[in-house]
């Protein structure tokens, strides 16, 4: 039984033996992002709309942290189809959320 896995695992840099620095960094960054968001909100640092946008950006950064520091996002045999799939999923997520919010605000009369 042949296996296609004679090729190497892409995005994999050997089994890490020493202190798990990347994990610790990931944790620290996620904590920093969290507290940053919390602080911005508590301090009412900006106008409402801008504030919401900024904390959303911070949340998106948290996705990046999880994907790259914890989820071994780039590892794959052969083409990285899961990266493409996830990218597509993000596009559709944005379409659904943005589209629905836009549709359901009925010409901007409601304050959703």
């Amino acid at each position: 039984m042949s296996s296609e896995h004679h090729e190497e695992l892409r995005g994999f840099h050997g089994i890490h033996r020493g202190f798990p620095w990347s994990h610790v960094v990931g944790l620290v960054v996620s904590l920093v992002l969290t507290f940053a968001a919390l602080w911005l909100v508590q301090a009412h640092a900006m106008p409402h709309g801008l504030l919401l946008a900024v904390i959303l950006v911070l949340a998106v950064l948290q996705i990046v942290v999880q994907l790259f520091f914890f989820m071994h996002f780039l590892e794959s045999y052969g083409p990285r189809y899961h990266v493409t799939s996830l990218a597509l999923a993000f596009v559709f997520t944005v379409c659904i959320i943005a589209g629905s919010l836009w549709i359901m605000t009925f010409g901007g009369e409601q304050t959703y």
Binding site: H5, E8, L9, F12, E75, H82, L86, A89, T93, I96
Partner: peptide, 29 residues
């Protein structure tokens, strides 16, 4: 081989991991 993590060492493992990524995409939606 010491250079391949065990979970990826079988084709079954690699397929299921890929399948699970796609499941996560559905959960995301």
């Amino acid at each position: 081989s010491s250079d391949v993590p065990v979970e990826y060492s079988t084709e079954d493992g690699a397929l299921k991991i890929f399948g699970f990524w796609i499941f996560l995409a559905t959960d995301l939606i």
